[in-house]
């Protein structure tokens, strides 16, 4: 996978661990951003206050706190 099979021994091991570390950092940042962006809408869908399609197209009503998502 990712064409690293041609490397050998320590180099391959270091690249493998580096890939897992990089993925973890990307996932931490990426999912963190997604949570901030989609979290409140996802929560309103789960609460039954908004339909999935409405949430996707940002057509949900403002929340009772004046529209502040968080």
């Amino acid at each position: 996978m990712f064409g690293i099979e041609t490397l050998s021994g320590n180099a391959q091991a270091a690249v493998l661990v580096g890939i897992v570390l990089l993925e973890a950092l990307v996932l931490y940042v990426g999912y963190g951003g997604l949570e901030t962006w989609l979290g409140p809408r996802f929560r309103r869908v789960l609460e039954g206050r908004c339909a999935v399609l409405d949430a996707l197209f940002m057509r949900c009503q403002a929340t009772e706190n004046g529209g502040v998502d968080r």
Partner: peptide, 28 residues
Amino acid sequence: GGIGSFLYAQSGAVDLSIVVPLLAGSAL
């Protein structure tokens, strides 16, 4: 975990086709 992964990866015992999707799912 990093050292253990490295030691196993030296002998080709870490399979990214397992780890990458597992991690992507578990982080979410």
